[in-house]
């Protein structure tokens, strides 16, 4: 009854085809089948945000999706975000502000932050806190993360303004 299912999807721009059990969570597929261990499993019930990845451009919890549901989608993980260089300024700001301690929340946190920044403008600190309110960080107390996101928003807005 629970026959494996063949799926094909794109992860970080690379196509992948695999046969998976229907019950396999997307996060386990990414970590164990695609060997992309930058995405972390923190709670498996959608609360902590550690497993957040980008699916067809939007942030999603990869513990609340089955791998089979990802058929035909385009997924970006932290490895893709980092390698593409598209969020290099954000990664750099996280580093300079020490918005990372143990690093376990970072991949999910960065995906969420990048989603907010993609909306453009300079969100105020409460808006930043609101957007990452589903991403748990036990180490930093969040302030340095808010600092990093705010700085990138300002810099990007400045550049956008200068280019216009």
């Amino acid at each position: 009854m629970s026959a494996p299912v063949q799926i094909t999807l794109s992860i970080n721009g690379e196509p992948i085809t695999a046969t998976v059990a229907p019950r396999m969570m997307l996060v386990d597929f990414l970590r164990e089948v695609a060997a992309l261990t930058g995405t972390h499993l923190g709670c498996a019930h959608g609360v902590c945000g550690a497993c957040t990845v980008r699916l067809d451009g939007a942030s999603v919890r990869s513990c609340l999706m089955l791998a089979v549901q990802a058929e035909g989608t385009e997924i970006e993980t932290i490895e893709g975000l980092a390698d593409s260089g598209a969020e290099a300024d954000l990664l750099d700001a996280f580093h300079r502000h020490n918005a990372v301690q143990c690093g376990y929340c970072s991949s999910g946190m960065l995906v969420s932050a990048a989603e907010l920044l993609a909306q453009g403008g300079v969100p105020d600190r409460a808006t930043i806190r609101d957007h990452i309110s589903g991403n748990y960080c036990r180490c930093t107390g969040y302030q340095s993360i808010v600092d990093a996101v705010e700085e990138v928003a300002r810099t990007r807005a400045g550049k956008a303004g200068a280019g216009a």
Binding site: T37, G38, E79, L91, H95, R96, V100, C102
Partner: peptide, 21 residues
């Protein structure tokens, strides 16, 4: 000084126990 070993964590290149096979 920013932490030299934090960059790989931000790039998803950490090595936590569950990452090892």
């Amino acid at each position: 000084v920013p932490r030299p070993n934090a960059v790989r964590l931000l790039h998803g290149r950490g090595r936590y126990v569950d990452d090892k096979v």
